[in-house]
Design a protein around this nucleic acid. Sequence first.
DNA 1: TAAATAAACGAAACCGGTTTCAAAATAGAT
DNA 2: ATCTATTTTGAAACCGGTTTCGTTTATTTA
Lengths: 339, 339
Amino acid sequence: MDKAGVRAITIDDIAKKANVSKATVSKVINSYSGINEKTRQAVLKVMREHNYWPNTTARSLSMQRSYLVGLFMASELLDSFFREVIPGIEATLGSQGYDILYFADKRPGNTGVTFGYLEKCRDRRVDGAILLSYIRGDIPEFESLLASDIPAVFIDMTLEGPYTSYVISDNHKSARLAVECLHSLGHREVGYADGTSRSVPAERRFQGFMETVNRLGMHCRPEWIFQDSFDEEYGYHVIENLESMEQQPTAMVAQDNVAVGMIRALWERGKSVPGDLSIVGFDDLEISRHYNLTTVKQQKYEMGVAASELLLNIINHKSNKPIVMDTDLIIRGSCMSIK
Amino acid sequence: MDKAGVRAITIDDIAKKANVSKATVSKVINSYSGINEKTRQAVLKVMREHNYWPNTTARSLSMQRSYLVGLFMASELLDSFFREVIPGIEATLGSQGYDILYFADKRPGNTGVTFGYLEKCRDRRVDGAILLSYIRGDIPEFESLLASDIPAVFIDMTLEGPYTSYVISDNHKSARLAVECLHSLGHREVGYADGTSRSVPAERRFQGFMETVNRLGMHCRPEWIFQDSFDEEYGYHVIENLESMEQQPTAMVAQDNVAVGMIRALWERGKSVPGDLSIVGFDDLEISRHYNLTTVKQQKYEMGVAASELLLNIINHKSNKPIVMDTDLIIRGSCMSIK
DNA sequence: TAAATAAACGAAACCGGTTTCAAAATAGAT
DNA sequence: ATCTATTTTGAAACCGGTTTCGTTTATTTA
């Protein structure tokens, strides 16, 4: 568009007004040394007077740096987990002058082709990427990603490469804490509900769950194990199934969304938590507080921060060591001693 | 970074390999006419062989177009409403080759200054912007925005200018439908709970509510009107307050989040919906289905689509006529006839 | 077959910055 | 006052595309 005929003002304009070369203006903009203080002030004054701000596109082209970070999320977009991680990413990258490119699915009009991860990154020349909650095997490009030179940090997926690293919670510990909590309340018969074990956190939690259950001499029948989905609906499904069984657990360990669904399903049946069933959750989502759910917290905001810092480190050729976040038990009211 | 020494391949490389000029390659890329079919095929072949994709940054600089759209959201980021609108934006803009820039709060390292709306847009040379659910008076830059030449579309805020337009639901109708529904079930004493009336939708809904209540000869005591917040917590607050009143409504009209909070609060008190209170919601959020809430639906995904199309129209100098989306009643189980 | 017309192509300028490096200006030393 | 060392400065190349417009090549027409 012709922008109402008003051409944005450029570095050349500033140079002319200030009677210096554009090279000098550029150096002032970037706070380089070797510029006379008087000159610097004069240039700054002109810049201010004309409300000048450098064209990021031109700067990107020239510097081969976009100050853009791509944010890719597994399809169940904007779920409750992301919702708490993203602000940490935003705050950290934002304070370093980065903007976040939230990738849409298609590319330049033309053919409507769906482009993959790498193409998107290269195309926009992002300086790096953060990938949230992808599930192993869901993206065929992971290998080329590892071989590529685009800095990337995964959250909740353990993938490493020269320019690739990850942030993940200590999910094994989470499960241990959950089971130990129930054990200490006297529970011995305990079930489990979480998302697909192709998800790394769910896989690790399940390992931790089984190990701890065995170590403490507790029992978990195979039919008490549900591993399909992360949503509330699934919680209803879990309760329906449990209901129809002869033997039932006295307690369940379940991811928060699922746990909330379970609680609601029980309520609708006139039962209560923890009266009829004790539940310990995973994640400590925002909603869990409202349901008074005892749960093992993931430090979600902090994960966003950590992932961003890790990414910046990789971009700047510093450490790319993976980060494991601590977890801890948040005691609320969804568990009680066995009668 | 040195990108592992691998320089990305450029249009010049392609031109050389294909024995043509970069101008010709450019024309092939952009599907211009006036290129011999044989030449075109040859160039395309080389492009494919080298897995070439044009540098968007360079293209943006040259074309004075970024194919970037800024997405700004009022701070209660990623709430349940946005969550359903955004996919519509994404799909529509994505299919047109646009990417979405999700704006973070700070700009180029330097001073850590917080930049405003306009600066962000200009700085990144976005082709346009979509602003979600901002509240009148919350952003001081609205006026300069109206005067500016950056195409912008508001969702849920009625602001118009030469390059500015908006998309909003027919909120007045929503309220009318809600009240009429309750009236037809015999309710005459009805309360109201919604967010601040500084929000345009909440304002319009309230007008519609009062008008319809009066028109149909129903009653709404002043103390039955709650207009502070859009969240579940507020629903608890509403129920607590109602509880303590001598006169109580037989039904409430309430925004979905608030309604859900009310339902939960009632459950916790051993009461039921609609047994003890009928409720009609606004919005039809995802969660409302799980609560079996009768509600007036906003076409959220479609609003995202409409806003995107409107924005593209403005960018391409076509119509900038505001769009009002229809709403309709979704009958579920949260209302019953008065006994 | 020559001239007129149409189609295809490419040289060069441009978008708005950064960076290199030689030249100019200034300061310091003798 | 002259010469050297140090700061400052700016011309020009570069980043990787797009676009204009004149030139070359191919096709028609006479």
